[in-house]
Write a protein that binds this DNA or RNA. Structure first.
Length: 418
RNA sequence: GUGAUCGUAGCUCAGUUGGUUAGAGCGCUAGGUUGUGGCCCUAGAGGUCGGGGGUUCAAGUCCCCUCGGUCACCCCA
């Protein structure tokens, strides 16, 4: 076997991809109802866009980016997350606000893969730019929840937090830093080195040592300025009015530095401990400005397609089955009727598969059977002489001879009886 | 980046303390008399035992390296 998919990637083949189609279509339908339009942007960008977007302390940009120089000497990176590109496009085209959009994108992260973790995974997401109101935060979270509901994915928890803004976060950071310095000796190896880069990241650390320190650390939601506190309260109220349960977690710090105020994550207990997130997002009111655009608030989320499919399969939640083909055409004459018939049937919305083989009747019928089609049309010399073909209901025995110009009608009759 | 574990046909796996031409089930292909699928029967194709090196008279079986899969840590979807 000479070539294989690169380490940490996989092919999604038709036997599996029909589930993807359903997931994507459901997502699209839900966000379209809220006025979100699709954005398709390049999968690679100037590497600095992601670095400045996600931030220098983010692991994703610090050590997991697929970076390379192109032939023109430009430093390029494969997209590790969806938001930065949307914001870049928003700025580049000076789009009118509010800008509501959704996307479907692969995301690349150079890391060792394991369960529910790939070097290329796929995210569905939305972003809203230029709208600052708790109702937008509530809408965005509600859309994600509605999407999960549409998949009957009930095994999930919504975790929420507020990261504050430029008024209160620096003060909190300072306070936290002081606390951490006084407890520095007990931090884990990683954070004893890096905690000054972004002390907030320590809150998220899963090691025993850091966690015991964090439990005594000042809580961010108790150190919000009055604006942020009021905003957070209104978001929580809005959610509860919709009956959306959210668990407040002041240690929820997401992987990107750009978040302000509302951050949230959807988790499923089906996934193992620390990689239980099936989606997450938050507000980023300074990101547009920091990437060179006008001061514009923003909020969005991303949902991992592989993760939700994994959760669904572990929960035994089935997607709709693949549709059976309506017709399979067996051709014993190698003539042109095959093409004409299949073209005509398809133009009437009847799905039609041709055998594509010039082999024996038995062989082609075996194929027809395997295709799981409802009806088989056999084009044979004997019937053709009289302008007829043979028609079989593959769920029954026997067959009938029908005139070629009445095939469509006869096929529809058989399809109806089901 | 760290640690563990595995790697035999398309798939799931057998392969005795290292010993003759490497097996099974499923799948695939073709047949089972002249043009009728599913069930059944028969036959066939398909493997340099992940790759490279070493030990040995002899290696799928032992050792080393490497690539890949799986899982955990870190971090994330």
């Amino acid at each position: 076997m000479k070539f294989q998919a690169p380490k940490g990637t996989k092919d999604v083949l038709p036997g599996e991809s029909y589930k993807w189609e359903q997931v994507i279509l459901k997502f699209k339908n839900i966000v379209s109802l809220a006025g979100y339009g699709l954005t398709v942007s390049p999968m690679f960008e100037d590497a600095n866009l992601f670095k400045r977007g996600a931030g220098e302390s983010s692991d994703v940009t610090r050590k997991e980016m697929y970076e390379f120089q192109d032939k023109g000497g430009r430093l390029i990176a494969l997209r590790p997350e969806g938001t930065a590109s949307i914001v870049r496009a928003f700025i580049e085209h000076s789009l009118p606000t509010p800008f509501r959009t959704w996307y479907l994108t692969p995301a690349f992260r150079y890391e060792r893969h394991q369960k529910a973790r790939y070097r290329q995974h796929h995210q569905l997401g939305v972003e809203v730019l230029g709208a600052l109101s708790p109702s937008v935060d509530v809408e965005v979270i509600d859309l994600a929840g509605t999407f999960f509901d549409s998949l009957v994915l009930k095994d999930r928890e919504l975790i929420i937090n507020s990261m504050g803004d430029e008024n209160c976060r620096p003060q909190y950071k300072e306070k936290l830093l002081k606390y951490l310095i006084s407890n520095k000796a007990s931090l884990c190896d990683e954070h004893i080195e890096h905690f000054e880069l972004n002390p907030l990241r320590v809150l998220d650390c899963k090691t025993e040592s850091c966690r015991s320190i964090v439990s005594g650390a000042p809580k961010i939601d108790e150190n919000l300025c009055s604006d942020c506190e009021a905003y957070y309260g209104r978001v929580l109220d809005g959610l509860s009015q919709l009956g959306i349960k959210a668990r407040k977690d002041p240690t929820l710090v997401r992987g990107f530095d750009y978040y302000t105020r509302t951050t949230f994550e959807f988790t499923s207990h089906v996934l193992s401990g620390t990689q239980n997130a099936i989606g997450g997002g938050g507000r980023y009111d300074n990101l547009v400005e920091s990437l060179g655009g006008p001061k514009t608030p923003g909020i969005g989320f991303g949902i991992g397609i592989e993760r939700i499919l994994l959760v669904m399969s572990e929960l035994g939640l089935e997607m709709d089955e693949q549709k059976r083909p309506d017709v399979f055409i067996v051709d014993l004459t190698n003539g042109s009727l095959n093409s004409e018939l299949s073209h005509k049937l398809r133009s009437h919305g009847i799905s039609t598969i041709i055998s594509g083989q010039e082999t024996s009747l038995k062989s082609q019928l075996r194929m027809a059977n395997k295709s799981n089609a409802r009806v088989c049309i056999i084009i044979g010399e004997r019937e053709l002489k009289d302008g007829k073909v043979s028609l079989k209901d593959l769920d029954a025995a026997g067959d009938e001879i029908v005139e070629i110009n009445r095939v469509e009608e006869s096929v529809k009759n058989i399809l109806k009886n089901h």
